[in-house]
């Protein structure tokens, strides 16, 4: 067990890297989708809604398979890691879009009205009044999404990304000790989830409105 532990730590770092990159992609996709869904343009609203429905309405595993195994058929050749980042990122982006939208909608309408009556434009109102308050409200839900992303990253083991779950499976063959091996993998996931949760707590306190 001690002999394989360094491999697990290395694999856990891959999981973290995968999660971090997918998080960045997801946040970008989510911001665009949320903006689209709250837009005054019917086309942008439809695009945003279609994206969210598609990626929340189908299993993440199928999305990864379509991208990784189906991609080459339509000329998209991705290595496993890139496919994993893109698949996980687009998937979590759909959930994060709803977290962002929910936070913006949760800001009291009176705030918008007050800003507009002073003479601020829609955009100024959003940037100076609504978003600073919404940003605080979205920290927790986005934190929950990030934890889901971290745990869900185990799925990319099925498209042979050498991350924590894949590494664990590989060592079953040589050790015949699935209980210990998967137990250690689970423990490492828990440590990472705990770290993310603490980070979210910290951010939440840091940006609390007094």
């Amino acid at each position: 067990m001690l002999r394989v532990f360094p491999f697990f730590v290395e694999a856990a770092l891959v999981t973290l890297e995968l999660t971090a990159l997918a998080l960045l992609l997801g946040l970008a996709a989510a911001a665009l989708a949320a903006a689209g869904r709250m837009s005054r343009s019917a086309i942008l609203r439809a695009v945003g809604t279609a994206y969210v429905s598609l990626f929340r309405g189908t299993p993440c595993l199928i999305q990864l398979f379509v991208l990784y195994f189906g991609g080459p058929q339509i000329g998209i050749n991705l290595d496993p890691f890139a496919a994993g980042v893109i698949g996980l990122g687009l998937n979590i982006g759909a959930y994060m879009a709803e977290s962002i939208r929910g936070a913006v909608v949760a800001v009291d309408r009176g705030q918008t009205e007050a800003a507009r009556t002073i003479g601020f434009s829609r955009f100024q109102t959003l940037r100076k009044v609504v978003l600073p308050q919404a940003a605080r409200l979205m920290i927790r839900p986005l934190g929950v999404n990030t934890v889901a992303l971290l745990k869900g990253s185990a799925l990319v083991s099925t498209i042979s990304v050498v991350e924590l779950t894949y590494t664990a499976q590989r060592f079953i063959g040589s050790t015949y000790k699935p209980f210990e091996i998967f137990g250690v993998a689970a423990l490492l996931y828990m440590v990472m989830v705990y770290a993310v949760a603490r980070l979210v707590d910290m951010l939440d306190r840091r940006f609390a409105i007094v």
């Binding site: 009176g110 705030q111 007050a114 507009r116 009556t117 003479g119």
Partner: peptide, 14 residues
Amino acid sequence: RQQMGMVFQHFNLF
């Protein structure tokens, strides 16, 4: 709107 001041029941301070 810059020429009209409005005061609300629920204040709506930022």
